[in-house]
């Protein structure tokens, strides 16, 4: 997508990414079902094979590597369902992606209050 490289630390989830990540996102979408979450927990490898994840996607799932999951085409809305299985919230994800501790990431959010009030 034109201009998609222009924003630091951001990859718009466009058609190219959506095609690359389809199997991974389809698996994560299945985690809306509690039964599917249990099946995944019982045998992650078998579950990933059933959904046809490629090696990069499977490796990022094994490592709980959030940036790796995004690079492999994961979309944050579906990945959030995987994070839910792990008991992680969006501050955990934010910390993992920025290299901060969770406390430091939360402090950085609070510090946004110090921004100016006018454009």
């Amino acid at each position: 997508m034109a201009g998609s490289q222009a924003i630091f630390g951001t990859t718009p989830f466009d058609g190219t990414v959506a095609m690359r990540g389809y199997a991974l996102n389809r698996m994560c979408f299945s985690f809306n079902s509690a039964e599917n979450r249990e099946t995944f927990r019982a045998d992650e490898e078998a579950y990933m094979r059933a959904y046809g994840l490629d090696e990069a996607q499977a490796e990022a799932i094994r490592k709980r590597d959030v940036l790796g999951l995004l690079a492999a085409g994961g979309n944050v809305y579906y990945l959030a369902k995987f994070a839910g299985i792990l008991g992680l919230d969006v501050q955990d994800l934010g910390a993992a992606q920025t290299g901060l501790t969770k406390e430091a990431f939360k402090a950085r959010l609070v510090a946004q209050n110090d921004q100016p009030e006018t454009l």
Binding site: G9, T10, L67, Q97, F105, L109, P116
Partner: peptide, 13 residues
């Protein structure tokens, strides 16, 4: 912004 290295971005102004 939830994802990427820019996670946590907020633009108050």
């Amino acid at each position: 912004q939830l994802e990427g290295q820019r996670a946590g971005f907020i633009n108050k102004p």
